[in-house]
Design a protein around this nucleic acid. Sequence first.
DNA 1: CGGAATCCTTAAAGATACTG
DNA 2: CAGTATCTTTAAGGATTCCG
Lengths: 117, 117
Amino acid sequence: MKKYNIPVEASLEVIGGKWKVVILCHLIKSKRRTSELKRLMPGITQKMLTQQLRELEADGVINRIIYNQVPPKVEYELTEYGWSLKEPLDMLCAWGEQHIEKTYPDKSEVLLEGEEV
Amino acid sequence: MKKYNIPVEASLEVIGGKWKVVILCHLIKSKRRTSELKRLMPGITQKMLTQQLRELEADGVINRIIYNQVPPKVEYELTEYGWSLKEPLDMLCAWGEQHIEKTYPDKSEVLLEGEEV
DNA sequence: CGGAATCCTTAAAGATACTG
DNA sequence: CAGTATCTTTAAGGATTCCG
C-alpha cells in the first residue's frame, strides 16, 4: 500500500532527483543524445546522468532511442506522458529567470548558459 | 560570479531541498506553526524541518513569526515573494494528483493524506 | 513548544578504469 | 559514444539529548 501525505509527493518521486528537472527542461526544448546532455550539464558525471535517465525512463516520462550503429548513438526524448510535465516545468523555469533577475539586478554578477567572460 | 547553465537551476536552489516543495505547498494552504508542519509531514525530523525552514527563510520565500510567550509559539507563512511560487507549485501538485490516479487506477492501492485503513 | 547541539549512520555523489 | 562496474569520499539525514 503506497502512502502519500500530500499529492505533490508523487510529483517529487518522479522529478525530485538532483538533475531530473534540468534534464527534462532540456528535453522540452529538443530531443538530445547523451553527449549533448553531458555538454549541457557540465556539472554532471556520466554515472549520475545515466542513473537519472534510467529512473526517468522507468517512470515513463522519457524514451530512450537506440540507433544500432558504430559508434553507438542514443537519443532521449519526452514520452507523451512526459509532455504533461511541460506546463509545471515551464512555470518553474520562468520563475527561475525572474529569480535570477531579482537576485542579481546587476547582470555583471551572473553568468548564464552560453555566455562567456 | 554566479553561474547558471540553465535558469531553472536558480529555482532548484530555492525549492530543491528534499522537503521544501512539501513545506511550501502546505503554507500555500495556510499559515502553520512548527508542530503543525511536523504533524503534516510525519517523515520529517525536527532537525530537517528547522533546517529547511531556515533556508527557505534565508531565500526570502517564507516568514518566521515569533510570539513572545510561554510555551513558545512560532508560525511560518509565505512572504509576498514566496507567493510568486504559488502557480508553479499548484501545477506541480495537480500533476501529482493526476500521476497518482494514473499509477494507481485501483484506489485501494494508495492511501492519501487524512485517509485511514 | 521550538530549537540548538551532538554524535553517528548511510546513501548520494565523485573518481577511475574498463567494455562493446 | 554510451554505458557498466568498483571503490572512495562526502554530505545528507537520523537519533538523541539538553535548553529557554
